[in-house]
Every structure is written in C-alpha cells, then in structure tokens.
Design a binder for these strands. Sequence first.
DNA 1: ATAGGGTTAG
Length: 719
Amino acid sequence: MALICTIPPYITKHKNVTPFEIHKFVKHLCSLSLHYPHEFDHCFKSHSFYASLIDNSTHITHLYQVHNQLVLSGLQHNRFLMTKLVNQSSNLGQIFYARKLFDEFPDPDLFMWNAIIRTYSRNNMYRNVIEMYRWMKWVGLHPDKFTFPCVLKACSELLDFGLSCLVHAHVIVYGFGSHVFVQNGLVALYAKCGRIGMARMVFDRLYDRTIVSWTAIVSGYGQNGEPWEALRMFDQMRKTDVKPDWISLVSVMRAYTDVDDLEQGRSLHGCIIKMGLEEEPDLLISLTAFYAKCGEVTVAKSFFDKMKTPNKVMMWNAMISGYAKNGHAEEAVELFQAMISRNIKPDSITLRSAVLACAQVGSLKLAQWMDDYVRKSKYGGDIFVNTTLIDMYAKCGSVESARLVFDRASVKDVVMWSAMIMGYGLHGQGWEAIYLYHAMKQEGVCPNDVTFIGLLTACSHSGLIKQGWELFHCMRDFGIKPRNEHYSCVVDLLGRAGYLKQAYVFILKMPIEPGVSVWGALLSACKIHRCVTLGEYAAQKLFSLDPYNTGHYVQLSNLYASSRMWDRVAYIRVLMKEKGLTKYLGYSVIDINEKLHTFHAGDMSHPQAKEIFYELQRQERRLKEVGFVPHTESVLHDLNYEEKEENLCIHSERIAVAYGLISTAPRTTLRITKNLRACVNCHSAIKLISKLFEREIIVRDANRFHHFKDGLCSCGDYW
DNA sequence: ATAGGGTTAG
C-alpha cells in the first residue's frame, strides 16, 4: 500500500508533527485497518511505531486511541509500551488515567512501578508515593536508583524524619549508599527536615559532586537560617569545575536576600545577565523578591511587570511581601486586591503577606475586610495565617478581635500563643497576658524567647513591676537566654518604679553587650524621673551605637525640657543641625467611613479644615473651662515637630481627634495611628477629651497603644 | 525506556 509506505517514516521520524496530524493519522489508520486488516499487520505490530505515537501525543484523546489500538492488536500486555503509556499520561497530567492503566496491568515490573511512583511525585501527591513504595516492597520488588529519588523527595515534602531514616536504611540495604542521584536526594531531604548537619555529612562524603549536589547543600543552609554558610558553600563551588545553572542561582539569590546584601546581589545579577539566564521565569521571581526585600521596590516592580505568565502566584507573593516589608503597605494591599480582581488564586503565603501589610496600614476596617477574606478562603484554618491575623488585629487597635481569631483557631502553637500575649502587651493588658501564659503552660505548650518578650513588654506597659521581675527569672527554668529585648523590658520596669540606680547596675551586670533598646529604656526612665546625669550618659551610649537616629536626640531634649534646662535644649537643636539630622515630620491617620485621612501638624489641607478648626477651638474652650493647663514647655520644645507648627500648638493627633469627633456618631470609638511617640501635652489633652466628650479614643504611637477612657490612659502616663 | 536540586515565610 502506497499510503503506508509514505506516512510511517514521516510520522515516526519527524519530531515536529502537530497533535492534529497525529490525531488525524491514527484515526485514518484505524479506520483503514478495519477494511484491510492484513495490509496493516506489519505496521500495527511495530513497537517503535507505537512508541513514537505515544511520545508525540499531546492530548489525552491520542492516548485513548493508541491504547484502544494496542488492545485490538493484542499488545495491551506489552510492558515496554504500557509503561510508556503510563509515563506519557503522567506527562500530560492525567494521574488517574495513569493509575487506571497501572491497576489494569496484570503483573507490573519495576519500570511500571517507577512510572506510577514518578507520576505521583511529579504531581505533589507524596502520600501516594509512599503508599505505592510500601506496596511495591510488599509484593517483593527491590527499589532501584530510579525509585529512591522520588521516594526521598516525598519524605522531604512530608517532613517525616522517622520515615526518612527508614528510607535511608533501605538505600543502604539495597546498595545505593554511594549513588550520586540517591545521595543528592538525601542531602536535600535532611536539609528540609532541619538536620543540616546530617545533610552536610552526606554531602561531604560525596566524591562526585554535581551542580545538583551543590544546589542541595546551598539551599539547605539557606532554609536552615544560615545564609552566610550558604554563600560560603557557593564560593567553594565556584572554585570547582561545576558551572552554576539557573536553579542553583535561585538559592544563591535567596541567600543574598536573607543577608540583605544589595551590592553582592547586584553583582550576581550581572553574572546572571552574562550567562543569559535573566529570562528564566523562576529566577526572575527570585530577583524580584531580592530587590523588593532590599528596598529597591521600583526595580522589583519592573521585573514584576515583565512577567510573562501573569498567574504565577509566587511572583505576586514576592512583590506583595516585598512591598509589605519596606513600608509600602498600601501598595501591597492594592496589589493584593488587583490580584483578586484578576481571579488569581492567592495561596497561604500571599495571605500572610497581605495580612502583614494590613497590620502596617493600621486601619481596623481594612483588617476586618482581610479577616473576612481569609475566612471565606480555604486558609481559614492555616496556623500561619491565623497568627498573622492575631498580630494584625492587635496592631490595628482591636485586641478583642485578635482574641476572637485566637479562640476560633483549632490548632495553636507557641508562636500563636506568643502573638496573642504580645497583642495584650502592646495594649497594656498585662494581666490578660499573664493569664494566657498560664493557660498556655496548662495546655502543655512550652514558652520560648518570644513568649517572654511578649510577657515582659506586657508587664512593662502595664506597670506590673513585681510580676515582670519574677517572669524574667522564670526564663532560666526553660533554658532561655535573655536577649537585649528582654533586658530592656527589665530596665523599663525598674525605671518606671523609679529605681534608676538599680536599673543602671542591672545594665552593668548584663552578660551580653547592652544594645540600643536597653539604653533607650534607661533614657526614657530618666526623662520621666528627671534624672539628667544618668540620662546624658545613656544618651551618649545611644549616640555612639545608633548615631543617625533622630529619636534619641529628641528624647534627650525632652529630658532637658522636663528639667527646664532650656540652654541644653537649644544646644541639642544646634547639635542636630551640625550632624545634618532632620526631624521626622509627625503625622496621624484616622479611618473614617473606610477612608484613611492623614493629618500633619497644623494641617489646613483637608476639605473640611474649617469645621475641624472650629471643633478644635470648641475643645480648647471646654478644656480651659475645666482648668486644663497646657504643658507649654514640652509643646514648645518638642523636637518631634517643625518649628512653625510648634507655634500653632496643634499637633496632628489633636486634629485627627477633632475630625473624628465631628465625623462619627456619639460614643463611637476613635482609632488613630501616629508615626511618632505621643507628646505629653496631647496625651493629657486627649485624656480629658475622652472624659468631656464621652469617647473611647485609641491611639497607636510608634511604640504602643494608648487607650483613653474616662479621663485616663491605659499606659498609666508612662511611655 | 524511567531520575535528582530551587523560589514567598508567623
């Protein structure tokens, strides 16, 4: 037959056949074979003919046809062709069809088993991988060098260390103790299980290290919080003949991201361009994450915009988390909303980053929207997402909502308990934090260093001096070494109670070098208790440790102001000018009708400015009526503010309060976020306003929350 | 005939 002589070489040898042509050809052959069965015998019995058809098929219907034809030709028990069919089903993502073929095959051999195991591995169905592996051993087959890599991958994804050890034992028993592919799998496996030491041991014993081995160890250190070691290994790799490929560079990029080394990362980016790997989509994601995390959000955004497949969740995640981590919280939220409107499904990491961004925006309305979204998604039970939600609500001013999330979470670990404790601490609810700590121990959860930071902060924010002191000493019972954050809480506690000398002695006895937070706490205490000499000493330490932070100069100036040492106040002003330090501009944000309104000191730019200032005057009159005396010294000399605005005596938080009062129904709680510390004068004024106008007012300043109610503040006038 | 490594992050 002329037809058959011309078509088979074309279809079997030419790789660029379109699916349509195959489809048509198979159909054609099948129909012809019904009419001329004998003429086609030689063709339908040729294995290479079928093999080629299978390899070139691009749609499941092609496979159905080939399978039908195999059955007709009595080849349905041919191991070679049936395995090929399973493999190709796997390539086309047809997991269930692959399994059906496997199940129908009477006596599968090792090839067939490997094919079905690989199918599950490629589709991230790791439980099935293990199930098939166990079954395969049960029927008496020995796993080989093709089985183990898939099984090891499955162990590492399931994070089952016990199972991993068992499989490692099998590797040795079946004689693959020094096979490179299998060993590479072991390196990656131990690294993922957090046993980087074991990973390194396996790696060191490898005598033929490929790029895959190096990538496994570099990424292993990266995943285990040792980016410096990861970079050191990469350096070592470069001294060998092994050439980096794009997958290995993903891990190296991540290490540079973690150590925040913009310069080195940039130079690696240069190498990537030279190697012609810049268009590699997944490497582009790593580059985006790198630039975003290092603060170069514009560069990152340009990569993001270059993205070819706009539904790659990881790219969105890299950009959203990058924005969130660099003070571009609003952009992060906008991008998240853009993602949803484009119908791209966020994953749990997207949600974590978006929630983190909401926490930074500080709007309770936005926080509630985010919470609703999470609850409707399939990540409502995700322990990471819920922990971030707790943190978000606490930072947006509603510790009650944070508690609701905490209570509805079915699984709780240390980090979640700590986040809730930290939330209470932020709001000065020390007793709640301590109750929660006891409840946590009752549940059998062991506290860690972060738990104690939360507890000590809670005690210091609520003035629970004795309790804080006791808790600090409890840390030893859990084998936790105090860090600077812990010490600074204790200094704060002692300072609050007026034990300034004791606080100083406590610092001198610290077994580690006291850091910025410790001296900062001492300076604050000196400001409250007007202790100039010790305060100056603390300030000197701060200036040498953290010379470009304006806040320390402001604190020292406030200390001088509190002691009416105006010449010193003026001197600080000169000092700051000499050092070229500019004062931060203070601003306050209030959320009214789901819109954020930002005010600077003396701000006249708001459309309702007239009404606001009328309200402010009304407030001033009422305050004077009840005998309120402004703390003129701190107002006039508070370096938080621009000079001309100081003269106006109208700080941003007061404007926000005034606007809140005229824009909301009586008794509505006002929630305000301020970028700097609260000033003494505004603090006293708002306390009175909360009583006179019967409003609860919650102000988040740079350090903590102030709950104003009935003329009092939750901070107890110490901050 | 079949294989291995990587990326966001409370």
